Simulated scan of single mutants.
Amino acid sequence: MKMGGRNSLLLVLLFAGFFNFSQATSVTSTEPHVLRSFRIKSDQTAVTAARSCSYTLTIKTSCSSTKYTRDRVSIAFGDAYGFEVYAPRLDNPSSRIFETCSTDTFQLRGPCTYEICYLNLLRVGSDGWKPESVKVYGPNRPLITFKFNKFLPNGVWFGFNHCRKVSGSVIV
């Protein structure tokens, strides 16, 4: 089948338009970013009481971070259905958590999630801290790693959101 020059050009333009449109609608980012509109979900109490799961977090502090931090560090992660695990304080200034080149492990309980698609950290204080990565192990879920390798800004949620909108309802 022979295509004319005009048809070939139209096909190329359609393909280019589709490619640009699909790229423009993507909301995921491979780099962590400030999330000024992020808010902790306050309606998780009933869900947590009904179905609670255990999570293991492994947080590696970058070798280019400050020697240690006394800053308050919070974490929130969850899925596209709104199930969220939140820990208001991971830090412990009297211990040696979040030292340069260290790896710290935490056990958290929270609502059972589907695939974890977002993770955010909040640092409040004056020392500074640069996490290299955060790994989350959950029940019946594959390990997921979020690579930060950036100093966290002070007083704002900072992280990743790879969630896609979910349509319909979910039975928990």
Rank of each mutant, 00 (worst) to 15 (best):
S8K: 11
G5D: 10
F15K: 10
S94Q: 13
Y86D: 06
T28R: 14
G128S: 14
C163A: 00
C53Y: 00
L90V: 12
S37W: 02
C53I: 02
T30H: 11
R96F: 07
L57M: 07
N120R: 13
I171G: 10
W157S: 01
S133A: 14
R109M: 11
C117K: 03
L108S: 07
S22Y: 08
C101Y: 08
R51G: 07
K165I: 03
A49G: 14
E84D: 06
S169G: 15
W157N: 01
T103K: 15
V156R: 05
F158T: 02
Y55L: 05
A46S: 10
R123G: 06
T25H: 09
Q23P: 05
S102T: 11
W129R: 04
C101L: 06
N92F: 11
Y118C: 03
L119P: 00
R164D: 02
S65F: 05
V156K: 06
P111F: 00
N7A: 15
T48H: 09
P139R: 02
K165S: 05
D127R: 08
I144S: 03
S62V: 04
S74W: 04
G128C: 14
T58C: 05
R109K: 13
T113C: 13
V134R: 04
Y68A: 08
P139Q: 08
K150F: 08
S62M: 03
G78S: 13
F77C: 03
V166P: 00
N161F: 03
C53N: 01
S167F: 07
V166H: 08
G138K: 01
G82A: 05
F158Q: 03
P139W: 03
N7G: 07
F146I: 02
I75W: 06
R70Q: 15
V12I: 15
F15D: 06
N120C: 12
L57C: 06
C101R: 10
M3D: 09
R51S: 07
V172K: 11
T66L: 01
V156Y: 08
S37A: 09
V85Q: 04
T48I: 12
Q44V: 14
T25F: 04
F21G: 07
W157C: 02
S22T: 14
L57P: 02
C163Q: 01
C53K: 02
S74C: 09
K67A: 15
T28G: 04
F148R: 01
S62K: 03
S133E: 13
P111Y: 04
D104R: 01
D127V: 10
T28F: 05
F146M: 11
A46C: 07
L143K: 12
F83S: 11
D104Q: 04
E99D: 14
F148I: 03
P88S: 15
S42D: 14
F19T: 09
H162Y: 11
E115I: 10
K60R: 15
K147F: 13
Q44A: 10
Y55S: 01
L10E: 13
S94F: 12
C63Q: 07
R72T: 10
C63W: 07
C163F: 02
